[in-house]
Design a binder for these strands. Sequence first.
DNA 1: GCCGTTTTCGGCCCGACTGTTTTCAGTCG
Length: 570
Amino acid sequence: MSNQELAKILNEMAAFLDMKEVEFKPRAYEHAAFSVQSLEEGVDEIYKKGGLKALEDIPGVGRGIAERIEEYIKTGRIKDYEKLKKQFPIDIEGLMAIDGVGPKLVKKLYQELKIKNLNELEKAAKAGKLSKIEGLGEKSEQKILRGIEFLRQSHGRFLLGHILPTVRKMLDNLRVLSYVKRAEPAGSIRRMQETVGDLDILVTSDKPSKVMEYFVNMPEAQDVLSSGPTKTSVRLEIGMDADLRVLPPESFGAALQYFTGDKYHNIAVREIAIKKGYKLNEYGLFKGKQLVAGRTEEEIYKKLDMAWMEPEIRTNSGEIEASLKGKLPKLIGYDDLRGDMQVQTDWTDGENSIKEMAEAAKSQGLEYIVITDHTKSLAMAGGSDEKKLERQIKEIDKIQKQISGIKILKGAEVNINKDGTLDINDETLKKLDVVGASVHSNFNMSEQDMTKRIIRAMENPNVDILFHPTGRLIQKREPYKVNIDEIIKTAKRTKTVLEVNAYPERLDLKDEYIRKAVSAGVKLAINSDAHSVAHFKFLEFGIAQARRGWAKKNDVINTRPWQEMLKLLK
DNA sequence: GCCGTTTTCGGCCCGACTGTTTTCAGTCG
């Protein structure tokens, strides 16, 4: 059992209760599900330590849900859930994943047409049966079909690194229009989340209708989904939906605030506003009908006695309390990195030469890079053996003499064998400035064996950094099973640095693990894992990831000059 | 079902847009 599974059940219970038109309970179950999902500890651990009482300490979990969690831990089932499931034997999660389908529609579909899952819904829609139901029509039927298609294509979310360039270009194009005063992204893009569901753009303009007209006709827009005087939605060519909202300047900060924080941050902030006798919406902070703040985010938070929070941490996971107490961390900045400690070249699976990579890094403003080509057991990448590494060391010395303004350090991305030994001997490793170790094979080990394997590698006095510590590929491959708490503990004990790999598909460590590592006092390195000169720009995503994990400049070793950085290694 | 320097009872974030209606329910963020 896992928090993930439990959260899924609680969410489904919320949806079933919505179908039954029960009041308020659905929100309670949703809230509990979210809390469970974002817990750092397993609910079974919490229960073991503190029993029912400890479960009730989880936000949104009271006596009732705590007892159901207890039942789940003890028996692996929740009777109330099974009762609901019996009443509605349907794949409610799958159906509600379709855009425009909510619990009420699911109920109607089940009662009228006995539809229980995506396939049956698709069949009914294609047969024109949906439009015959009262309250639905042709358009709803087509919308559902498009929703199913979209879901199948993309799982509905996009990697930040894949879509950000397009988004920035669109924003630039909006900003140069004479009738657009400001244009800013909000939502998950402004929070720099690892994946993005859709795009929110906020604009101030004295000619809203012209902005809307531009937006629906811009080359990136493929379909117009809805269009009104203040809000327009389009589907972009890249497959993502984009919402544009036009606002008066006196409301711009309020709208930024409203559309940037995730749902849970916003609920918490609005509740604080209510307690102080205000109402907060996207147009401003109001006392009765009087607008008291709205032009900037800062003035709104200030009225609520809160310090302004960086967008990346607005997820109601402690930032509200820290803001109220004036104890927000100063997060690492986007200009704070001086070096990149994982760079591949054409000596193995990289695209470019050592010199080309060094020059590209220099022109991006970096002071140093570490060359970390793969080693021999990664045969597919032409990994180096000891001899090839020795030759590369000499080659780097030669290139360093030809190039100034950037330090090229010698390193390797060494494979961790199945038993935790490395595929390069210690004598050779000692000659390198930086040794990164990583898992590239035997992903399907038990958690216990994998953890032991990685710990053994970290205990090697030559291993400075554990590269992409969990091995996940977002939307493609699950992380291998590993006990992250043990890894963090070992990192602290052995002074091994943990990597925040900035490659858009990896972003590994993920934010919640970064936060754990930071609070354990473990040092991090943010690296691009560049395989070509174009990849140094990925560092931005690694920094965003670190910021979402509440990392400060001081927690990240490659914010320091290279001489100082080296002193922090084993 | 949860929660409390407004409450252990009585509230629960809030507004825009769509589609199918003829005044509004449902969904979304």
